[in-house]
Design a protein around this nucleic acid. Structure first.
Lengths: 142, 142
DNA sequence: ACATTTTAAGATAAAATTATCTTAAATTTG
DNA sequence: CAAATTTAAGATAATTTTATCTTAAAATGT
């Protein structure tokens, strides 16, 4: 459902959101702390810089930082930047046009689910951080 | 979410379920009626034969037929035969082990959705056919 | 200026998915 | 038996996704 690129970056940005006290955090550090392949992550992070979610600075002490407050950055934004959000507004059987008026055999049930999925991924990083920091759950995997 | 193979085959088997009056239906006919690529469909149908969902017979008047009553054939069976059902029982962020005890950052919300998706795809062909034939909706795309 | 660190960019490659084609085998019909 | 039809099987190819590597550019600190 989510590509490797998206999964890596969601993990990376949650980590970044949890460590915003430092000024910049290098991709190298993130890749090491989260055990993600450096070159692959770096390439995907670049795309998030281009799409306006992150800013980056080179050189020693350089790294990446959020370009907007994390309450305005949602998981779906990462998905849109790296994959696309077709899944959340198109037919599960692949019909180009599939609607309430001219549905496929499972359209009506699928519409409910795809909207729920969109809602799930419409969560902001701020909400996730809040759940982790102030939620009852411990032992969060990052 | 679903591969092209699975999408084609779901459509093919719904069509087959709606046309069970004929003895056998050829893959050729299905591919033409549903506008699906013949060679690709034929290959995927073969895999459903091997997995025990369909039986096939060669020669003129040959074709395919269900090997069990359609109330016992579920969409998830097609998915399992051609792709796999990992999506419905694994972590959305790709962690090998992710559980209630040691969850990822969105585990608790994802578990609800993946179970709903499983339920959706746990629908039998018989139920789908019933909805199409006796449901209020017309204009079903096949 | 120089060495070091870090992102940027693009080339390259490996793997998985999707798609097509060809030949063989089985069955039916005449 | 011969011709036509249809699935079976496997080779091949195209495309997309995933992953790695190399070189360049920018910034820092000495």
């Amino acid at each position: 459902m989510l590509s490797e690129s998206v999964k890596d970056c969601i993990r990376a940005l949650i980590f970044l959101a949890l460590n915003q006290d430092h000024q910049y955090i290098s991709v190298k550090e993130i890749s090491e702390r989260l055990n993600l392949p450096f070159h692959f992550l770096a390439k995907n992070i670049q795309r998030l810089v281009k799409s306006g979610i992150l800013a980056s600075y080179r050189g020693p002490k350089g790294g990446i930082v959020f370009k907007k407050p994390i309450k305005d950055i949602k998981i779906i934004d990462i998905i849109k930047s790296l994959d696309d959000d077709k899944l959340f507004n198109s037919c599960i059987l692949g019909f180009e046009e599939c609607s309430d008026e001219k549905p496929c055999a499972i359209h009506h049930r699928w519409v409910i689910e795809r909207e729920r999925l969109y809602t799930l991924f419409n969560t902001s990083l701020a909400e996730i951080v809040k759940n982790i920091k102030f939620g009852k759950i411990k032992n969060i995997k990052l």
